[in-house]
Amino acid sequence: MKTSAVAEEKELDASPILQVVNVSHSFFTKKGAVLEVIRNMSLDLYYGEFLGVVGQSGSGKTTLLKIMAGLIKPTDGKVLYKGKAVNGPTPAISLVFQEPVLFPWLTVLENVMLALKRVENISKEEMKIKAQSFLDMVGLSGFENSYPGELSGGMKQRVVLARALVTNPDVLLMDEPFSNLDPLTAVSLRREIDLLRQHETLPPSSVLLVSHNVEEIVELSDRVLVLTSRPAQIAGEVKIDMGKPRDRRSPRFYEYVDAIFTLMS
């Protein structure tokens, strides 16, 4: 099963792993009025792709991610993972929130192990080993028995990342994961996520990053989708053809940034 999937990957490099098909979503306000957040949106996330999505604050980016992760059922339309409908959360699709959400009464290791509870036929010992290995991977060796309250913001976000990756997901969805970190921590975490995505045997195979920070998006993405303000629709697409790591001060980089800003306004 696994080998055939890998074989297919080479062949069908351009096939989507996650598809959003004609999705619309509305909320109800307190006065009973309807607030349309997303209108008839379709997008594809391909194998091995780092897709960036930019939009102004309040443009429904977070709602889009929650729909893709199966947390919210859209008012209309559907989400397909490998061609099959996503009707709820699945270990194959992980989501990292803007704020690192960890349970303060559980140790770092226990917090990561939470994600493995849904996996069948796994012993407690295996869970521990697996969680520990992912904590090592995100650079938190030695902190497994600490409590979240003892960690810095950047370290917490790493724990969340370990928890998101420990189930070997194909898709990692990220909702402005760097916006609450100090600039230096954000730089190193961005780099690590990109390296992980490029790594062939480590999860995830595809990443979707949502942000309002255009430089950040251009630095990491292979392709960028620009959203309109509410209700969110796709205003345009920019393919970024630049080797990594990308120099934020190069003229080429700025051409892309300008192109995206033009689409946004």
């Binding site: 947390l71 959360p89 959400v101 849904r118 928890r163």
Partner: peptide, 26 residues
């Protein structure tokens, strides 16, 4: 209970007893 914590609980597909023991009770 903060909304985001409930979303994480959903996302991680915790079973009812785990939800109660690990999140609701604390």
């Amino acid at each position: 209970i903060p909304q985001v914590e409930l979303e994480v609980v959903d996302l991680l597909q915790l079973k009812t007893w785990d939800r109660v023991k690990l999140v609701y009770l604390p």
